[in-house]
Write a protein that binds this DNA or RNA. Structure first.
Length: 116
RNA sequence: CGAGCGGGCGGGUCGAUCGCUGGUCAGGUCAAACUGACUGGAGGAAAGUCCGGGCUCCGUAGGACAGGAUGGUCGAUAACGUCGACCGGCCGCGAGGCUAGGGAAAGUGCAGCAGAGAAUAGACCGCCGAACGGUCCGCCAACGGUGGAUGCGUGGUAAGGGUGAAACGGUGCGGUAAGAGCGCACCAGCGACCGAGGUGACUCGGUCGGCUUGGUAAACCCCAUCCGGAGCUAGACCAAACAGAAUGAAGCGGCGGUCCGUCGCGCAAAAGAACAUUCGGGUAGGUCGCAGUGGAGGCGACGAGCAAUCGUCGUGCAAAGAUAAAUGAUCGUCGUCGCGGCAGGGCUCGCCUUACCGCGGCACAGAACCCGGCUUACAAGCCCACUCGCAAU
RNA sequence: UACCCUAUGGUGUAAUUGGCAACACAUCUGAUUUUGGUUCAGACAUUCUAGGUUCAAGUCCUAGUAGGGUAG
C-alpha cells in the first residue's frame, strides 16, 4: 500500500532541475493545468515541483493553487507513473477549482509519460 | 424617532480522517536517511515599503562643501515626517473637521486671456480748466495787438463706470477749477515702544509714527534644525571538481558625491617576501546570523500628568521559524447573516415577531532579521461619548 | 527580497518657465460619386485615481492603483 506522505524526498527542489524540465520535458495540458514530465531513475519515486507565476494573483491565491495541486498529487500517488519528475503550473486565466485540479493531475501525468 | 459627529471592540466555534513543518525524547545508523511518541505552528493589518530606530559591515565615522529631509509653540519618545495638548487661519447652526503654519522689508523670477493700466502701474469712457498753440467772430490797426467763443491739440485729475483671481486702504467732513491722505476724525492693516496674562506660540489693552509699504517660496532662494554610506542578498565561518595565472609604481589602495584629514603597504638596484588589484572560485554547496529569559514586550495594581506617556511593584502571561519556501485538504457540527416555507402569537388585517425546516453566504489578506509608527484593504455583528431637528413627559 | 521607471482620444507620439491639451493613423457620421476608392467637413479626452498648493495643474507636492524593468 502506497503511503500518502509528501516529504522532502518527493519534491523537486533545485532551480536547475526546474529549468531543465520546463525546457526539455514532455508537456501535457488541459484547461486547468500545464504539466511537464522528465524521466529520472527507473525505480525512483515520482517527484513533484510546482511553479506559480506571480500574475496568478496575490500570495493567498498562489498558496491555495499550490496546496490544491500538492494535495491532489499526494492523494492520487498510485495512479501516477513512477520514475519521473513532474513540474506543474496553473494554466493562464484558469479559475481555481478543487474538483477540476483533482481530475487533471493524474490524467496529465499519464498522458505526458506515455509519449516518452 | 430621524439625521449626524468622534472613538473603540471584533476578525467565526468544536471535532473526525489524511498530510506538511520546528523542537524534545526514544529507537535506528560509523554518521545520516528513516520510524514512533509528546508538543508548538500567520495578522490586525503579517500588505504597501512611506518614515524612524536596533543590529551588521565599510576605517577610528572626524571637518568642510555638495545633496537630501523637516518647518507654529510646548511636551512625549530610543528615534521619527509619529503621537498628545495648546496657539493662529479656513469650513460647519453644532458636536466637530481640515491646516508643509519660518522668511516676500536680502536678492532674482513669474502673473496667460480680459482690461486704459498688472507692480516706483495707468488714462478708454468720464470729470475739470481758457495758462499755451490752433480754429472762428469782433475791434483797433496794418501782418501785429486786444476782447470773446470753442475742449480740436497740449494740460490737470483718479471720485465714478467697466475688466480681472488680484487695480496701490474704507467711511465721513473739509478742501478744490475738478479732484486726490492734500488736511482732519474714526475704522482696518503695518511698524516701533509700553503695560498685563502665558514656559511659549500668542492673546488683551494703551501710546506714537509714516499715511499703506500687494500675491506666489508644494518657483529659484535665504534662515533654523537633523542626516557618514550601504544593507540579513548585511555579515561570520566551513568549503568541492578543474588549474592556477597576470599586473603595479614612487606611488598604489582602503574611499561607494567631492575635497581635506586619516590608515595600510612601499619608496638606491636586483631577487624573494609582503601589499594591492584583476581573472579562475572564496564560486557551487553548506553551517551560523535565526527565534530566545526575550523585545524601547504583554497584562494587572498603585502613583504622576489635561493627555501622549512615564515611574514603582507584581505576574512562567509568554514556545511560528520555512528556504522551489511549512501552517493545509475533505467532511461534519454549532454560531451568524440573507432568502423561501410552515405552525403559534400580536394586530391598524397584511404586516410584524419567535421556534423549526430548506437553500445560499461568512471579508481583507500569508510571517521571511527584529521593533516603533504612518498609509492602504476589510464581511457580519457589538459598544461608548457627543451634536442638531421633531414629538412626548 | 531590494531598487528603479512609466501612465495623455481606439493605437503610436507632442505640449518651452504652470497659462486655450496638439499631430498622424484607425473608427464612426455626412458631402462629392451610378457604386467603391480618393478628396473635403465633422465627431471621438474625467491627461491612471484621490486629495492639496496656486487666480490657474497634463506639468508642482502627498497618498494610492496598474503596467514594465534591474540585481542576486
Amino acid at each position: 500500500m502506497a503511503s500518502y506522505g509528501f516529504s522532502k524526498a518527493v519534491r523537486v527542489k533545485r532551480g536547475a532541475e526546474f529549468t531543465f524540465a520546463l525546457r526539455r520535458g514532455q508537456c501535457a495540458a488541459d484547461g486547468v493545468l500545464v504539466l511537464f514530465a522528465v524521466p529520472s531513475q527507473p525505480d525512483a519515486p515520482a517527484r513533484l515541483g510546482i511553479t506559480i507565476p506571480k500574475k496568478t494573483g496575490n500570495a493567498v491565491v498562489r498558496n491555495r493553487w499550490k496546496r490544491l495541486i500538492r494535495e491532489s498529487f499526494r492523494t492520487q500517488i498510485e495512479q501516477i507513473p513512477i520514475g519521473h519528475d513532474y513540474i506543474i503550473r496553473p494554466k493562464k486565466n484558469a479559475t481555481l477549482n478543487w474538483i477540476a485540479v483533482q481530475k487533471s493531475v493524474p490524467k496529465l501525468a499519464c498522458k505526458a509519460t506515455k509519449n516518452t
